[in-house]
Nucleic acid binder design. Structure first.
Lengths: 151, 151
DNA sequence: GGCATTTGGTTACAAGTGAAACCAAATCCA
DNA sequence: TGGATTTGGTTTCACTTGTAACCAAATGCC
């Protein structure tokens, strides 16, 4: 028998669904952003300009999903895309001033939501949670979306 | 600026995506099960017969998603649905012997996968992780599908 | 150089998804 | 008792998603 209460992948999925929903409320309605769009903006805001591929790695989202989020953000003038002069297949993405303004408005809102959700955790508990997640993320680093030739 | 490395909802989503993918590999190909189907079987296997609504609560999946997973599992004779005599709106779901056999085959495989993914965590770290997740789950218990996006 | 392979990214298409509308049984309540 | 509301669950429809197929630029290799 599978003790789901102690089965980490299952618990993680339930929790992630719920927290994503809670956080999405603050940017979906007010800023008309989808989760893929917000996540793309969030990594650009945090780490600066980067290629779509890097966004894929940072977010664990599918590359098609990122591609579409990028198209939407471009249409809304929230990011720019310029060809990398060193490798013209690669497109460097970055927030526009307009995108940055949205980003700066959303950040305090999602942080407040997170703080509310985490209010039962002590600082030590929160650190332990992040620490465990660091280890799991390192262990799962290679896992991407299965493709035809990838067994 | 939003420090994504310490932002729990984001980290959870990345990790959940990766672990779900890793675990799904073991039942998707070999047993032709989708994640909603497997999750439905998993709660029935763990907690015994229950209504679709209870599956929804246990898994945090949308009720439409559960409804369709149930239809598929019925078509494959892996679960049964019988009307609850006390309340004939409600349908009691349960694994068939065939479904139970599949369940029993999948369980050790997903447990082995989990063990592999968690091998960097000590027993104490794992306990701390589950403990933190318990608190977060309690805090997010009320959150249902009121808004747009997931993933 | 020239042909095959790899890599970054997009498009086409089919499948999966959820919000809203819906149906039927149960419950509320005057 | 009987109409209104609630509840368990399914269907419809529009949208999102991922797989596979694709394009173009870069790289490998002879």
């Amino acid at each position: 028998m599978l003790a789901l209460e102690h089965f980490v992948p299952f618990r993680l999925s339930v929790l992630s669904n719920r927290m994503t929903r809670a956080v999405a409320k603050v940017y979906a309605l007010r800023f008309r952003l989808s989760a893929p769009e917000w996540r793309t903006m969030a990594v650009l805001g945090r780490y600066g300009a980067m290629s779509a591929n890097s966004v894929v790695e940072r977010t664990a989202m599918d590359k098609v999903r990122v591609s579409r989020a990028v198209a939407k953000l471009m249409a809304n003038s929230q990011i720019t895309r310029r060809a990398d002069p060193r490798d013209r297949r690669r497109a460097i993405l970055d927030l526009t001033p307009k995108g940055l303004a949205v980003y700066r408005q959303v950040v305090p809102l999602v942080l407040a939501t997170e703080a509310d959700l985490l209010r039962d955790l002590s600082a030590a508990e929160r650190a332990a949670l992040l620490d465990a997640m660091n280890k799991l993320e390192a262990r799962t680093a290679g896992i991407s979306h299965a493709t035809a030739d990838d067994a």
